[in-house]
Amino acid sequence: MYQFNYARPKSLAEAEALLAKADDPKLLAGGQTLIPTLKQRLAMPSDLIDIGGLKELDFIRAEGNAVMIGAATKHATVAQSPDVKKHNPALAALAEGIGDPAVRHMGTIGGSIANNDPASDYPAACLALDAKIHTTKRLIEADEFFKGMFETALEDGEIVKEITFPHPEKAAYMKFPNPASRYAMVGVFVSKGPWGIRVAVTGAGQDGVFRVKEMEDALAKSWSPDAVASIKIPAKGLNADLHGTAEYRAHLITVMAKRAVAAAG
């Protein structure tokens, strides 16, 4: 790691002020991706502003027809939350499958979506569940938030505060992990809710998480595994590496979608 200054603000307001002041700051929110990145000397921030322990960002509330999750809420907390398990069991199950137990004890939902790793799980949930991302500056629809690999709509100095997940009627996430890294090689989140039907895919796309309109339309006509089973996803734009061709990933999207619909019931 290169040298940096470290600050642990006591409030969100203080974090914003520190962020505005520093040369080339980075927010630290658990650090399960950021710290390994720094260890490899792949980033050289001037300041790390640690919001991972901010109590005001660590909460889960069920209100009305949605669950609100603070940005600094850890994956393990989401996975174990009675509110999430009750209203959005697919989201709880997704959180239980992120990384490994030790990673889930440190990693946060805000950190995960702000980083927008193309192989991470939460972006698929946000997109498929029509999540609202509340920042220190505005509210961003999930559809507008994820802008490609490691890119989001967040501006400099903007901090994710909370993610609101409206309750789905039916939802499930199926992940085919990369055999080596265990990140999603293909992860498909299907949902049915007030927003209609959504199918979001993580891991497979060169530009990060995306929706599959053809599957959404098919499921709107008939919510059943068979409805998506014969839909062939084009391989164009999908990742290819030693773990699998783009064609394989395209095929897995269909298989995982089918299984997710079956699991969602």
């Binding site: 470290y6 630290l28 790390l48 004890h105």
Partner: peptide
């Protein structure tokens, strides 16, 4: 760390 398993190579001492 505070009773939970954590990878000590993925967290700063100051954290």
């Amino acid at each position: 760390v505070d009773g939970r398993a954590v990878k000590s190579c993925a967290i700063l001492a100051v954290q």
